[in-house]
């Protein structure tokens, strides 16, 4: 589908995004996996001794 914008996105700017797109997508994927791993590791750690949480730290 031909899709033209009312401002010129700039040929160089447009193609550049396509070129770096794969790299940026990999960056996001790594971030997502890293978060999953971190969440998994955190879940597996034994619970710390029960202590009341101060109200200002409840977020």
């Amino acid at each position: 589908m031909k899709h033209l914008a009312y401002i010129d996105p700039g040929t160089g700017s447009f193609v550049f995004q396509v070129v770096i797109g794969a790299l940026l997508a990999i960056g996001v994927a790594i971030k997502v996996w890293w978060r999953k791993i971190a969440a998994f590791v955190t879940r597996r750690q034994p619970d710390p001794p029960q202590a009341p949480i101060p109200p200002e730290r409840e977020r």
Binding site: T11, S13, F14, Q17, V18, G21, L23, L24
Partner: peptide
């Protein structure tokens, strides 16, 4: 025009995925 160029030699076959957009 840019739309054509994105499908040119460098952009051929490549799509700007939602994940690439998020990465950008």
């Amino acid at each position: 025009v840019s739309a054509g160029a994105a499908e040119g030699p460098e952009g051929r076959g490549r799509r700007f995925s939602p994940r690439a957009f998020q990465g950008l």
